[in-house]
């Protein structure tokens, strides 16, 4: 049994240590907001937070999580998260929407760390999150909008 703390709740899972956090979340805990895209850390659809830091769920083995707190799109909260989700709705960011959980997780981690990111900061922090619908322009604007909301 491996113990994980997910969105503030202690969970137990009977699975091998090399099981990626992504699949523990999706198949064992029925938390399907975190998406599978490439399986090798190239697309960012599976982005979650470990102690507030954005990581790829497909590249994070549950045996390595230890006491770190896992946060997913289902549990994300706080000033930055609320601002990001509100900005995503305000600017109507998603199209197919499949990558957006990961985008929001990366954006929230960025703004928690750096509430006033520059354009370059945004591109750098979000670079690992691909969007095949190419909603990049609205994502960029929404991160800036969220940053403004956090000030207000």
């Amino acid at each position: 049994m491996i113990k994980l703390k997910i969105n503030g709740t202690e969970r137990e899972i009977d699975a091998d240590e090399d099981t990626p956090l992504l699949w523990a979340l999706r198949d064992e805990f029925d938390m399907t907001g975190t998406k599978f895209g490439c399986g090798v850390g190239l697309c960012g659809a599976c982005t979650v937070h470990l102690d507030g830091v954005a990581v790829r769920g497909c590249q994070t083995a549950i045996g390595d999580v230890g006491a770190s707190e896992v946060t997913t799109i289902e549990g994300i909260a706080g000033k930055a998260a609320e601002a990001v989700k509100a900005a995503w709705v305000d600017l109507q960011v998603p199209q197919c929407g499949y990558c957006q959980s990961g985008q929001i997780m990366s954006a929230t981690a960025l703004l928690t760390d750096n509430p006033k990111p520059s354009d370059d900061d945004i591109v750098t922090a979000m670079d690992g999150n691909a969007c095949r619908c190419a909603t990049y322009v609205r994502i960029h604007a929404a991160v800036k909008r969220a940053s403004e909301m956090m000030e207000g």
């Binding site: 198949d27 399907t32 998406k35 929407g97 959980s101 929001i104």
Partner: peptide, 27 residues
Amino acid sequence: MDRLDVRDKSTGKAVYAIDQKVEGMLY
């Protein structure tokens, strides 16, 4: 007008084929 699916897609609640699950299912 606002898209009807934006809120779900901004909170991880949108459900795609990959997210389907039924009782007793094998992967």
